[in-house]
Design a protein around this nucleic acid. Structure first.
Length: 119
DNA sequence: AATCTGACTGTTG
DNA sequence: CCAACAGCCAGAT
């Protein structure tokens, strides 16, 4: 397992019940802010029950995927006291979990990676 | 090494 | 609000 993957799993494990992080939040906390999509892939593969992957949602308080069983994801979140209105987390900013721990940069590969200015 | 696949995201129309 | 695009990144082929 790669360092990034291990960090992602550790971050997700630390999300308390009733709180949420976005895929992007998890990526940033794992030291790679733009790896949201990769986090999604890691969640999809992860079958370890100690990793509460249902607490990882998409940006803007949208639900995000859950291996096709998105109804189950909703159900799990509601069971933790969260409110949802049509695929949206209610008061998302309030329940969003943002660990204050600053990740060490996770030195490797590409550094720059900004968006290209449009011509 | 090269290519393809997404539980993603921000911008644009 | 929605859809289309274009980046992005780890893993699998």
């Amino acid at each position: 397992m790669q360092a990034f993957t291990a960090r992602v799993l550790a971050v997700v494990r630390a999300i308390p019940p009733g709180r949420l992080m976005t895929y992007g939040d998890v990526a940033a906390c794992a030291g790679r802010a733009r790896a949201a999509r990769a986090v999604g892939n890691i969640m999809r593969e992860c079958r370890d029950p100690v990793v509460p992957c249902h607490r990882v949602v998409a940006a803007g308080g949208r639900l995000g995927g859950y291996g096709g069983s998105e109804a189950l994801k909703r159900q799990l979140l509601v069971a933790e006291g969260l409110r949802l209105t049509r695929q949206r987390i209610h008061a998302f900013a309030r329940v969003r979990w943002l660990p204050n721990t600053v990740p060490s940069p996770l030195v490797s590969s590409r550094e720059p990676g900004h968006r290209l200015p449009r011509p």
